[in-house]
Write a protein that binds this DNA or RNA. Sequence first.
DNA 1: TCCGAAAAACGACGAATGTCGTCTACTGAA
DNA 2: TTCAGTAGACGACATTCGTCGTTTTTCGGA
Lengths: 209, 209
Amino acid sequence: MPISDCEVRDPRIRRTRLLLQGALRTLMQTKSFDEISVQDITDAATVNRATFYDHYTDKYALLEAYIAGGFHKLLNEREICYDGTCPSAASAIILAACDYLTLTHSGTECSRQSAFEPLVDEAITSAIRRVLMQGLKQGLKPATDAASEPAARPSPEIIAAAASSAIYGAVKEWFYTPNHPRAEAILPDILQLVLPILQTNARALSPVL
Amino acid sequence: MPISDCEVRDPRIRRTRLLLQGALRTLMQTKSFDEISVQDITDAATVNRATFYDHYTDKYALLEAYIAGGFHKLLNEREICYDGTCPSAASAIILAACDYLTLTHSGTECSRQSAFEPLVDEAITSAIRRVLMQGLKQGLKPATDAASEPAARPSPEIIAAAASSAIYGAVKEWFYTPNHPRAEAILPDILQLVLPILQTNARALSPVL
DNA sequence: TCCGAAAAACGACGAATGTCGTCTACTGAA
DNA sequence: TTCAGTAGACGACATTCGTCGTTTTTCGGA
């Protein structure tokens, strides 16, 4: 039932979805996610309950859209754009993930339960994946000058998948460690773990180094 | 409500949980996961519906236990035990993940939907994580001979988290690629991406190399 | 062998879910 | 300005959910 996504022209659709996501945001400051019913959400959003199902299959789908949207917004605000090589871009992405987890999970001590967490993980990971893919593909082109070898190295897709998963897995591990240090403190460790993956692309491009 | 896990003495508990997991397995050969109700499961398991909730908070929790259990079983059958260094152990884990995805997702074309997939991901990833942790901790001990430095390298926990996420992320990417090659064909690529993470530990141990 | 503890069966409950069909109101292009 | 297309409102429906209290059965140690 939920029509496409991302690019919605009709202002009515955009309005309703923002209302629903805003209502979810508001409610999650009080209750934990699975204490919230679809009814609660539509009431807070002043939207009919049946209308909810015109946009999302269930409240988990709404959560995913909300998280993905929020994280993308954060990345845009910080003007983060992975260019395929620069470690500082990777740092920015890692820090963004740290901050986003901190921001969203600050109010409620709800997490680590039910189907909630895996959904959040999925949403953030694929958001990171998208950013990385962008950079990897553009950093890739210079190499495909001629028809040399078809696929002598891992595809950008699999690199992005592995890297985004690794980044978020590490960040999550940091976040759920009791009394974890500040994000900046763990950054070098995560960077050390993740950079080799991202540089797989570059290394394959310039074996000179 | 769900009492501990893993190590259950009481045969009544073990029996009931196996019945429930078996019923889920059977039903998933026919319907997709979210077409299955708790009622369906308990009917097939010849268990009272209320009893279900004595063991699992909802059907998602049952799924997670089922997946985690099945994957662990596969690892045990293959006698996989990561020793902290050997790349062949990593290969075995990667292949196991490939095979498990293939086995479980063969019947139904259901996947990539609802809250189902993220749950599966979570279960498999944390199973891999556990195996890796085992090896990393034992491969770690030789170094902690004296009180040298507190934590000059990434902790085993964060290494395991990053590595397990990266492994499964890559495997998943492979699996969902249309007309993907055999698992053995993609193994070198994934290995190339993941080994640097795992060897972070070893490198820190013997900077001589 | 017996007996207390605990698991499972059972029936019933109010609440939440997901889906209909119909009607109203808004959008955007002719 | 008009008007066809479509999103949203609304009420109602059968199902499923999660929980409760009670009764029956099973387990495992004394």
